[in-house]
């Protein structure tokens, strides 16, 4: 009986390990620096995580569908540069529409290659990471992009305003999270994403158009990237060509941290949000306890390895196994 309890506790720890580790981190940081849990700081963290978070929502769909998207960072740079450039040429409204259309077109292209041509998503999106970066530089001529009249445009509302005391980026992140959570967990499309990622062949045998479902996950991802680009551009009203560089890995880290399986078929939007917040708070906490900014890269990596280990251990039912 005693042994039974021990296994059950072990299983619980392994399953909830990441939340427990997160709670321990939070308490530790809070004790080390009071400022960590002040509302101001909490809002600040969520707000600065919002752009990453919005991108992670979209990548969650791609990953559950059984694929990867490593192009989101460079695609976000593209969206940001494009909307800033077009702002002065077409006005804010048309600029936003055109930027969304162009970003979705990029997503459609990737979705076509991975979904319909069935090319390996790692290769395709790694290639697109580089190709889209080239596209961005071509568009901007390599120069930074700035809005000419920074104080006279309503465009800044997405990145800088508050509604009912809540920063708009947080609001947009939350709304999008709720909407996409419903799409994934409640609609036939969401169900098909899980089926295609969980077992593509069984999905085909069940009459599910696998190619179209994969295609659509990349459309969702591109939509999220465009939204992230909008937030980024609106916050700074000017940008370098490399603003999203490296974010693809952070995004993927948040998604995996949330528990989505890289094999596809598992994960939820809610868990990804948790993953995003864990990353954000830990990076913030490290700064507040006085560690160098660069330490976050190391700590983030350790946390991801820990998360993956706990995930595997939960599936095995024990922390260590002599055979794979």
């Amino acid at each position: 009986m005693a042994q039974l309890n021990k296994t059950e506790i072990g299983a619980f720890l392994a399953k909830q390990g990441i939340l427990i580790a997160f709670a321990a981190f939070m308490i530790g940081f809070a004790l080390a620096n009071q400022r960590f849990i002040e509302l101001d700081n909490v809002f600040g963290v969520i707000r600065s995580s919002a752009i990453l978070g919005v991108m992670a929502l979209g990548v969650t769909f791609v990953v559950i569908g059984g694929n990867l998207d490593l192009s989101v960072g460079s695609m976000m740079s593209f969206s940001t540069i494009v909307v800033l450039d077009l702002h002065d040429k077409l006005g804010p409204g048309l600029a936003i529409l055109a930027m969304f259309a162009l970003t979705l077109a990029l997503g459609a292209f990737i979705g076509f290659l991975v979904g319909y041509l069935k090319l390996n998503s790692l290769i395709v999106t790694l290639g697109m990471l580089s190709a889209i970066h080239g596209l961005t530089l071509t568009w901007s001529g390599g120069k930074n992009m700035d809005i000419a009249d920074k104080s006279g445009t309503w465009f800044s509302v997405f990145g800088q305003e508050r509604v009912m005391g809540i920063p708009v980026p947080i609001l947009i992140f939350a709304l999008l999270a709720v909407a996409l959570s419903l799409l994934l967990s409640k609609t036939p499309f969401g169900r098909k994403v899980y089926a295609v990622g969980g077992n593509g062949q069984a999905a085909t045998f069940s009459g599910i158009p696998r190619a179209r479902v994969v295609f659509l996950t990349y459309i969702v991802s591109a939509f999220c990237v465009a939204t992230a680009g909008l937030l980024q551009a609106s916050r700074s009203l000017g940008s370098q060509n490399t603003v999203g560089q490296g974010m693809e890995l952070e995004v993927l880290a948040a998604v995996i941290l949330g528990g989505a399986s890289l094999m596809g078929g598992a994960g939820t939007v809610f868990k990804t949000v948790i993953g995003v917040l864990i990353l954000g708070f830990i990076q913030n906490g490290l700064l507040l306890v006085g560690l160098d900014f660069y330490v976050q890269y190391i700590v983030t990596w350790i946390i991801i390895i820990l998360a993956v280990w706990l995930d595997v251990a939960a599936k095995r039912g024990r922390l260590w196994s002599p055979i794979a």
Binding site: P188, G198, S206, G265
Partner: peptide
Amino acid sequence: KSQGLVLGMNCRDNMTLPQVDDLT
């Protein structure tokens, strides 16, 4: 296992998979 079922999915969702579009 490879053609009939999505093993990680629950019983109900597996069973209704081909007609999920009509069960809304």
